[in-house]
């Protein structure tokens, strides 16, 4: 593995690789299959919670190849070794640990959502408190079916940061 933050998870049959540097937090994986991809848990990928077929289906939907998979029989020697040495503590996002006073980071993703990390609070449209996760992304394109969060629809509608005058 090249990046020490990269992770791999297995159910004995297939191995799923997670490459955080490629993850744009489109949240597709956990909108689709929260049983397996749950950012609120450690480890955040739990391979026992769904059939292999279903996991493959969702991994294939990751828009950036931050998630990829392989049959275990196809693993390289290096990947096998890494599987034995996983240390899930490193998965913790330090900005999310409570007690930090770092300001909350708000990242405007190009042609995509608002991605938020840190210690923060969300009040929904009905004045109810919503639960933040380590990957909270708010929809910016106006078309998500899971408001106020991004569900990936921005890609389908080709949302862009360019201001179009045909909004008139």
């Amino acid at each position: 593995m090249t990046d020490p933050r990269d992770r791999q998870y297995t159910n004995g049959e297939i191995t799923v690789f997670w490459i955080p540097s490629k993850c744009i937090h489109a949240t597709t994986c956990f909108r689709e299959l929260i049983e397996v991809f749950n950012p609120g848990r450690r480890p955040w990928v739990n391979m026992e919670e769904a059939p292999t077929r279903r996991i493959i289906e969702v991994v294939n939907k990751c828009p950036t190849q931050a998630l990829v998979w392989k049959y275990n029989k196809d693993l390289t020697e290096e990947e096998r070794k890494a599987l034995r040495e996983v240390d899930h503590r490193l998965e913790e996002n330090p900005k999310t640990l409570s007690g930090t006073n770092a300001p909350t980071s708000i990242r405007i993703m190009k042609d995509g959502p608002i991605f938020v990390e840190g210690n923060f609070k969300i009040i929904g449209a009905e004045n109810q408190e919503l639960k933040p996760t380590i990957m909270t992304s708010f929809c910016r394109c106006g078309s998500s079916r899971n408001m106020p969060y991004c569900d990936g629809t921005h890609r389908k509608i080709d949302f862009t940061d360019q201001s179009t005058e045909n909004g008139e």
Binding site: S105, I106, D111, F120, I122, I123, G124, A125, F138, M147
Partner: peptide, 26 residues
């Protein structure tokens, strides 16, 4: 809770943000 950033979803409108935060553009 004044040390946390707060995100308020405004019905039919924007997302209001207060508290300590840093915004990085696209």
């Amino acid at each position: 809770e004044n040390e946390k950033a707060l995100f308020q979803v405004i019905t039919g409108g924007p997302l209001k943000v207060t508290g300590p935060f840093q915004i990085t553009g696209s």
